[in-house]
Amino acid sequence: MKIIYTAEALATGEGRNGHARTSDGKLDVNLAIPTEMGGNGEGTNPEQLFAAGYAACFHSALQMVARQEGADVSDSAVGARVGIGPTDAGGFALAVTLEVSLPNLTHDTALELTEKAHQVCPYSNATRGNIDVVLAVAED
Rank of each mutant, 00 (worst) to 15 (best):
M64K: 15
N40D: 12
T35K: 15
E112T: 13
G83S: 13
V96E: 03
M64N: 15
A7C: 01
N30G: 09
V73F: 13
A95W: 02
D108R: 06
Y54Q: 06
E14V: 02
D88M: 00
E14Y: 02
L10A: 10
I84A: 13
L102Q: 05
T109H: 05
K116N: 08
D75N: 11
D24L: 09
A11M: 07
A11V: 14
D132E: 14
L105S: 08
A93F: 02
L27I: 13
V65Q: 06
N125G: 13
F50V: 00
N104R: 12
A110M: 01
A52H: 09
G83W: 03
L105G: 03
N130V: 07
A89L: 07
A7I: 00
K2H: 04
R67I: 04
G70C: 13
D88Q: 04
A126V: 15
I3T: 14
G53W: 01
V29R: 03
T22Y: 11
A71E: 15
P103F: 08
V82L: 04
P46L: 05
V73K: 06
E8N: 09
N130Y: 04
V133E: 07
K26C: 06
T6N: 05
T109W: 02
V120M: 11
A89I: 04
M64Y: 08
A136S: 11
I4R: 12
N45M: 05
G91P: 01
G18L: 11
E112N: 02
L113C: 08
D140S: 13
S60G: 15
I3R: 14
I4S: 09
N40H: 07
E42T: 11
L27V: 13
E47G: 06
E69S: 15
D132C: 10
G79Q: 09
S23W: 06
L111G: 00
F50C: 07
E139P: 08
T44K: 05
G43Y: 13
A71K: 15
H19W: 11
E47H: 04
T87S: 09
E139I: 06
G90Q: 07
A110W: 01
A71N: 13
N30K: 14
T44L: 05
A93T: 08
T97H: 03
A71G: 09
P86V: 06
L111E: 09
L135Q: 02
E42Y: 01
K116L: 04
A66Q: 11
D75C: 00
L10R: 15
V82D: 07
G53P: 03
D140N: 14
Y5C: 00
R128D: 10
G70D: 13
D140K: 10
D88I: 00
E8T: 14
A9E: 03
M37P: 01
T12P: 05
I4M: 10
V137N: 03
A77S: 15
Q119L: 12
K26Y: 01
A89K: 11
D72R: 11
T12A: 12
C121P: 05
I84G: 11
T106H: 03
A66M: 08
V96S: 06
F50N: 06
R67D: 15
I84Y: 05
N45Y: 02
L135N: 00
K2Q: 05
S76E: 07
V96Y: 11
R128T: 11
D108H: 04
F92S: 10
G25K: 10
E14I: 02
A126H: 09
V82N: 10
A71V: 08
M37L: 15
P103S: 05
L135A: 02
E139G: 10
F92D: 09
L94D: 14
Y123S: 01
S23Y: 06
L31S: 09
K116W: 04
